[in-house]
């Protein structure tokens, strides 16, 4: 005999796994992630928790393209998690995945937010998602007051180069109350035809003004 085959206790391990996981099996079903690592099953599980925190009213859904990709530019406030809130609310309302740019790239927060639809805030990452016909949320700089902060034109560039619609989205949240609002504005069109990078710079500035107008139209303080 040249060698002896060592058999691993596969059946015993499978039986042990079945016993150990039986009580929690419904929770640890073999979820599937999509091409970007978004886990719809996890989102469905966490959905009630998110709705416990935010009672979101969504408006302007008809502006979203039915199948094609689009870049959604939203305002943000510190600790409001507006991009995540908007992504979950719009995914539910539009019945298609909505991703948000700006997840961290460190465990455990980064991988968790990736499961919830987060991508990195990088132009190539946004470009890749838009090329695959995805809806991508990019947030403006955080602002403590009810004002739309400036937008990073480098993240707007992929949408300009690919010719996908750019939509301003105003979000309103409260730290204490559940009420939240997401209002999608009509697609933006450049006022001046540009060949170079001024196109995205001007669109980013215009988007900031559009979002501010939408925020002002909400009324209240």
């Amino acid at each position: 005999m040249v060698a002896q085959v060592v058999r691993l206790p596969q059946r015993a391990a499978e039986a042990a796994a079945a016993v150990v996981t039986r009580p929690v099996r419904p929770l640890i079903a073999p979820f599937m992630v999509d091409d970007w690592g978004r886990d719809q099953r996890l989102i469905d599980l966490l959905g009630p928790l998110a709705r416990l925190r935010w009672n979101v009213a969504v408006g302007g859904l008809h502006h979203l393209p039915a199948r094609k990709g689009a870049l959604l530019l939203v305002n943000d406030r510190p600790t409001s998690f507006s991009p995540l809130m908007a992504s979950l609310a719009l995914s539910r309302a539009a019945e298609r995945p909505v991703r948000f740019a700006g997840r961290p790239d460190i465990a455990p927060g980064g991988p968790l937010l990736r499961r919830l639809g987060g991508i990195l805030a990088r132009p190539d990452e946004v470009r890749g998602a838009l090329a695959h016909g995805e809806l991508v949320i990019v947030s403006a700089a955080e602002d403590h007051t009810r004002h739309a902060g400036p937008l990073d034109h480098r993240l707007v560039q992929p949408a300009v180069l690919q010719g996908v619609p750019i939509l301003p989205v105003a979000t309103l949240t409260s730290r204490l109350r559940r009420y939240a609002r997401v209002e999608i504005g009509p697609p933006m069109r450049p006022t001046t035809k540009r060949q170079g990078p001024l196109a995205e710079v001007e669109l980013a500035d215009a988007a900031q003004r559009h979002i501010q107008r939408l925020l002002d139209s909400f009324g209240g303080f």
Binding site: E14, A17, P30, D34
Partner: peptide, 15 residues
């Protein structure tokens, strides 16, 4: 498509 190690192990009925 994509898959994670945990999901792969579960699909293969591994522990």
């Amino acid at each position: 498509g994509a898959i994670t190690t945990y999901q792969a192990a579960r699909r293969g009925r591994r522990l």
